[in-house]
Design a binder for these strands. Structure first.
Lengths: 144, 144
DNA sequence: CTTATGTCAGCTGAACTGATATGA
DNA sequence: CTCATATCAGTTTAGCTGACATAA
């Protein structure tokens, strides 16, 4: 890949795509060992940070499709990492609440993902990693 | 998405994934108008930069799977952007050659992708874009 | 009535795997 | 024999769409 055409190597979209692909592979391997999925981490993180919420709210927060949110929550319910209860104030809604086991799960998966990051960004110094995160956040925010 | 959990927003792998997703959407829309695919651009770029090559060599250069390389080349042959001929020196190989129409196609698609980049990176200054590309290249090279 | 939420079934495209034929 | 190349068929998964029931 160090012999990729310059036209590709100079294009951020191509670079991001390739890195995303690589990160996806690393992440999948690591998470498979925990029998976890990437979406489950996002949902747990949202619940822990913002408290119990409807599936709709969770999906919007994490940028997960409503259909996938449903499947992810169902999976988490099966594993007792979250609980799903109807909202008495609006009976269309399910209120999803993280359990203590879910909080522990969150930390476990977070630690696993941190080792993935370290492997992925091994070539960058801590300052450069911060710089990269900063640039990426701004790109993402610029695209809403 | 500006309300995404901090745990996600601080993780480069999550940021890269989301941006890659967004870039993919922008690119697909733009390329659909040209009836083009992302892989086709990569193959044409490799052929133009390194000259005629076997499908295997192209795939390795661009990081495209052998099976997808085959399909992409077949597509390009249909559109007369490349020519496929057996290698007389090694009859297992197909030598793929870019045609003049292919070179024009390459420039067309390149221009389209450049507008996609500009939209994606609108939030960054030219210097910051260069910085981002530099960091991404180093991350990619660090992962071979 | 319209709109929001959740649920379900299924589609599409990308990345990949396995099998096979052929030739070096 | 083995290895490399091309080809083809099929798998997996992520992201998404459409339809529908329920309730505000």
């Amino acid at each position: 890949m160090d012999h990729a055409p310059a036209r590709l190597r100079s294009k951020p979209t191509w670079l991001i795509n390739k890195i995303s692909q690589h990160a996806h592979r690393l992440r999948s391997e690591r998470l498979a060992a925990l029998d976890a999925r990437a979406h489950e981490f996002a949902v747990l993180a949202a619940l822990q940070e913002f408290g119990a919420a409807s599936q709709m709210a969770i999906g919007q927060r994490c940028g997960i499709d409503r259909s996938d949110t449903h499947a992810t929550v169902a999976d988490l319910v099966d594993q007792a990492f979250v609980e799903r209860a109807p909202d008495p104030a609006d009976r269309r809604r399910n209120i999803i609440t993280i359990t203590p086991a879910g909080e522990r799960r969150l930390e476990t998966v977070d630690a696993a993902l941190t080792t993935v990051q370290d492997a992925l960004l091994a070539a960058l110094s801590p300052a450069e990693r911060r710089q990269l995160v900063d640039l990426l956040v701004r790109v993402l925010d610029g695209n809403n």
